[in-house]
C-alpha cells in the first residue's frame, strides 16, 4: 500500500496500541492466531463453561482466516481474511478476556467498536480476496486447537511484514467511515 507504513509486532503492547490511529498502514510481524466462525463458537462455549481457553488470549491478535490446504512443502495455502462482522457477536467477550488485536475484512458493529475503545484493543483490515499474496507473509503455521474443524481450526501463525490498516482504534475512530466520507459524491 502506497503511503508510509509503520512496522509493529504482535502481541501488541499498550504503547503500540496508543499509536495506532484509524487509517494508519502497518506491517505486522510476530505471532497471530487464526480463528473464524466455528472456533469463535467453541471459544465462547469454553468461556461459558468457565473452562480454560486452548491458548492464552491475553494480549494476543486473532486473524479471521481459514486457509486452503497446503500442498506438500508449502507453509500454508491461500490465506486471506474472512468477513469480520460474523464474529461481532463473540468479539466483545474475547476482548474482555484480554484479546488486543483482530485482523479481518469489512465493517464491525458498534458493540465491537465500543469494546475496542473501552478495553483498548484494535481492529485491523487487510486485503480481502488476496489470499495467495497474503500467504507469502506467513512464515510458520502450527495447529493449536480444534483440529477437527479442518479449515476452521485455530492455528498459531508466525508472520513477517503482514500488511494491514488500522480500522477501528481505541479513540473511537473508524477508517471505513473516514474513507467513505472522503470519496462519497452526491446522494
Amino acid at each position: 500500500m502506497a503511503e508510509e507504513k509503520i512496522v509493529i509486532s504482535s502481541p501488541l503492547t499498550s504503547e503500540v496500541i496508543e499509536k495506532l490511529k484509524a487509517g494508519i498502514q502497518v506491517l505486522i510481524s510476530g505471532t497471530i492466531y487464526s480463528a473464524r466462525d466455528a472456533a469463535h463458537r467453541w471459544l465462547i462455549q469454553a468461556l461459558d463453561k468457565g473452562e480454560k481457553l486452548p491458548f492464552d488470549i491475553k494480549g494476543q491478535t486473532i486473524y479471521y482466516m481459514g486457509p486452503s490446504p497446503a500442498r506438500h512443502g508449502q507453509i500454508i495455502g491461500s490465506a486471506g481474511p474472512t468477513t469480520s462482522s460474523r464474529m461481532d457477536m463473540s468479539t466483545p467477550r474475547l476482548i474482555e478476556a484480554g484479546l488486543k488485536g483482530m485482523i479481518g475484512k469489512g465493517e464491525r458493529s458498534s458493540a465491537v467498536k465500543d469494546a475496542l475503545k473501552k478495553h483498548k484493543a484494535v481492529y485491523f483490515v487487510t486485503i480481502g480476496g488476496a489470499g495467495a499474496l497474503l500467504s507469502k507473509s506467513i512464515k510458520k503455521s502450527e495447529p493449536v486447537a480444534y483440529e477437527e474443524l479442518g479449515a476452521e481450526a485455530i492455528l498459531k501463525l508466525t508472520v513477517e511484514n503482514f500488511p494491514a490498516i488500522v480500522c477501528n482504534d481505541i479513540y473511537g475512530e473508524d477508517f471505513f467511515e473516514q474513507a467513505r466520507t472522503q470519496y462519497c459524491r452526491g446522494g
Binding site: S68, S78, A79, G129, G131
Partner: peptide, 9 residues
C-alpha cells in the same frame, strides 16, 4: 503457483 486466488474457494 496454482495457489487459490482466495482461501474461500
Amino acid at each position: 503457483e496454482s495457489l487459490p486466488l482466495c482461501q474461500d474457494c
